[in-house]
Amino acid sequence: MAKYLAKRIFYLILTLFIVITVTFFLMKLLPGTPLTNQAKLSQSQIALIYKQYGLDKPEWQQYLLYLAGAVKGDFGTSFQFSDQPVSYLLSSRIGPSLQIGLQAMVVGVVLGILVGAIGAMRQNTWVDTTTTVVSILGISIPSFVLAVLLQYYLGLKAQLFPIAEWGGFIYTVLPTLALGATPLAESARFVRTEMVDVLSSDYIELAKAKGLSRMGVIYHHALRNSLIPLITIVGPLAVNIMTGSMVVENIFSIPGIGEQFVKSVLTNDYPTIMGLTIIYSFMLCVVLLFTDILYGIVDPRIRLTGKAN
């Protein structure tokens, strides 16, 4: 296990290194400088700004400096807000994104498990049909459409929740719902398929033959076996939430990193885009590592060999 972990962490670092390197040189291909957003400046002013951003050095030096900085969490200075280090900008914004993202993940997956399990237990009845329709709708409706509808109907019309800005828990409700719909639908679908499979398996038949009650069979045998594989889709779901948050945070004017990403893209704020790319990649890598380890812990078949799949 320890060896496996060490290997995985090594790969995580290697991956991040590659991500940083590739993004850095991609960004160098881009037109535009910190000056693009500013009014006419004198030569000396330009030189000064170049120096401030370290653009006066050769590229390989810039790269090494950037790499050294990134390790310490320093991603340079924003082009758009010339007085703000990217790391400061992002650290003040990551809180709301994490909160909404985690809430959406938890709410979505928990409800998804419930919906999926109920569907599987009532297989081929109207209950099953309803849950299937709900999940396929959840997958098909883009989160930004849902966000606008929620904002209008629950926020503006019903006045149940604030429609924008960031304040307390109540402000997180609508964005959480908008972002949580896809994880809900995806996990419901996944759990249903998985559980239908499990319920028709031989070991469930044996559990019934032992005299376990219906609920006993579900609780002691079916649930664990159908939920363990759910861990494998947490990574893709995290990607989905990150992607969705870019638009949803915009719609609800939430000061998170998703909103910042869009803003930076529209203003060509390259250092911030790079910092965000690295942060997104870092978060995703951590989620994938975490789910892999978790899978190893909960599935006895993987525990011994120490590798997934």
Binding site: S201, D202, Y203, E205, R224, N225, D299
Partner: peptide, 10 residues
Amino acid sequence: DPMTSLDPTM
């Protein structure tokens, strides 16, 4: 089939 009639996670 003994390969499939035991709960793999218990």
